[in-house]
Design a protein around this nucleic acid. Structure first.
Length: 478
RNA sequence: GGAUUUAUAGCUCAACGGUAGAGCAAUCGGCUGUUAACCGAUAGGUUGUAGGUUCGAGACCUACUGAAUCCGCCA
């Protein structure tokens, strides 16, 4: 068994001074052939290990290079230097893994995020990605904690699905058929009845429909799993493989849904402020440095921590789609003709319109509700006005849509009517419709893009930098 | 998928159409309580690829490839 003291616990002051410790980690810098900055990932900070260049053999000293994995045994003492309170005086050095600095891509300097994306297998060793990954873990944990504390059950929706009726996006096909020589039907089409599942199958684009099935038995459930969209999306906020949280609640309406989503988002932010302060402070500083190279007008008004605290301190603005359209139409921005796309009741809002509402007009998160029914999915509950559905989108500054949800249509006749209008095959969906046939009830739910939440809390601009190994068009390396 | 921008040393970036340079990293040496240590020296390039314009192209033009940003699709 390997015994070691984690660097994070030493830096937190959990280890008594003048006690012997064994620390293991990767060298971040080696100054003055004497001072090692050692990091083991347990925290952002590094531990200073002091080696004696006179009593340590020259060959070993040479092998202490940036990136090398090293074990030090020594004494934890108060530091003589200024930059740290404690340090380890090493009396034994063991190199676990050498790291040839002439070919190791990570240098003790600032690298661009684009470059680090090309070496995603090594980027967890950087301060930025270490911080993001620890933060990501804490947000995931906070989500489970939030729902568990509220009596929700974590439900595992399937990853492989044969229904493509939801229409949430292009799907990835799952097949074991030989692509060069697939079985064909008499009509010359690929015969998926010969495929593994006896029918065409895909990776899930949403666990919602299955989530509804569970919610109509357990009342309160959430899913948290990978989701796949085969869209040719090339933006800083889309991935082909991402993680989505989808709560579904029986005996709940749109307002309950909004309350739940707002509480959940705020809980996660508060949890990070309480538990990831060091990493958040680092990311905040990183952001300030990054923005120094931008023109004044493009810099954000608030620092990262300030922004998170601001979101916590104010209720999200809730308004109807119709009201939002009025605000946009009557805005000076519109009167001066500064919108590229016209605003008209009945069309989906463009990014620039959402940005204006969130970043200029309200300057805080916005929940837009009651959208025109023809721009939303078939399962959303139809409002009495006959024109709108009980949909809600939560828009965050810099990210755009972070949550999309609705009260679901629980009335069988209204649901099938809408499915017919939208040409959604009802026979394939018998299992979904059965929930409305047998003991239907009002219920609501939403989908939260996990990476978008990580983006918001970390302040990272590109979604590809908040997931360890991003998948997007043309890229599935590592 | 569309638009725009961009590609120069391992990394980050310079170079008016006129001999391709700096910082960091590397190599060698010095210093030794440092804080992405510091000081001196050395080495490092078919300027993304293929064409074209020009007396002369890293720079201008065309195509291709990759990247970034914005838009669309959404979470």
């Amino acid at each position: 068994m390997i015994k070691r003291t984690e660097i994070g616990s030493i830096l937190k002051g959990q280890v008594a001074l003048d006690t012997p410790v064994t620390v293991m980690g990767w060298v971040r810098s080696f100054r003055n052939t004497q001072f090692v900055a050692l990091n083991d990932g347990s925290s952002l900070g590094t531990l200073q290990v002091v080696v004696n260049p006179e009593t340590t053999d020259a060959e070993t000293l040479k092998r202490i290079t940036v990136g090398a994995s090293v074990c030090f045994e020594g004494q934890l003492v108060a530091s003589q230097g200024k930059g740290q309170t404690v340090e380890v005086i090493a009396n034994k050095v063991e190199i676990f893994g050498d790291c040839d600095p002439s070919v190791y891509p990570l240098q003790p300097k600032k690298h661009s995020l684009e470059f680090l994306r090309e070496i995603a297998h090594l980027r967890p060793r950087t301060n930025t990605f270490g911080a993001v990954l620890r933060l990501r873990h804490n947000i995931a944990f906070a989500i489970h904690k939030f729902f568990n504390d509220k009596g929700f059950f974590y439900m595992h929706s399937p990853i492989i699905t044969a229904s493509d009726a939801e229409g949430a996006g292009e799907m990835f096909r799952v097949t074991t058929l030989d692509p060069k020589n697939p079985p064909l039907t008499e009509g010359g089409e690929v015969d998926f009845s010969k495929d593994f599942f006896g029918r065409a199958a895909n990776l899930t684009v949403s666990g919602q429909l299955e989530g509804e099935l569970a919610a109509l038995a357990l009342s309160k459930i959430y899913t948290f799993g990978p989701t796949f969209r085969a869209e040719n999306s090339n933006t800083s906020r889309h991935l082909a493989e991402f993680w989505m949280i989808e709560p579904e609640v029986a005996f709940a309406d749109l307002e309950d849904n909004m309350n739940l989503a707002e509480a959940m988002l705020k809980f996660c932010i508060q949890y990070c402020l309480d538990n990831c302060r060091e990493d958040l402070d680092f990311l905040a500083t990183r952001l300030v440095d990054e923005e120094k190279s931008k023109p004044q007008a493009e810099r954000s008004e608030m620092g990262l921590i300030e922004k998170l605290e601001f979101v916590l301190a104010h209720p999200f603005e809730r308004l109807n789609y119709t009201e939002a359209v009025d605000i946009l139409v009557n805005s000076n921005h519109n009167k001066k003709g500064k919108f590229k796309f016209p605003i008209e009741w009945g069309t989906d809002l463009q990014s620039e319109h959402e940005r204006y509402l969130v970043e200029k007009h309200f300057k805080k998160p916005v929940i837009l509700i009651n959208y025109p029914k023809h721009i939303k999915a078939f399962y959303m509950r139809q409002n009495d006005d006959g024109k709108t559905v009980a949909a809600m989108d939560i828009l965050f500054p810099g990210i755009g849509e972070i949550v999309g949800g609705s009260q679901r249509e629980e009335r069988l006749d209204k649901l099938t009517e809408r499915m017919a209008e939208m040409h959604i095959p009802q026979d394939e969906m018998y299992w979904f419709l059965d929930t409305r046939r047998f003991g239907s009830c009002p219920h609501a739910g939403y989908g939260l893009g996990f990476e978008r939440l990580v983006q918001f809390i970390s302040g990272m601009g590109n979604i590809r930098d908040v997931i360890p190994f991003p998948r997007y068009p043309g890229s599935a390396e590592f």
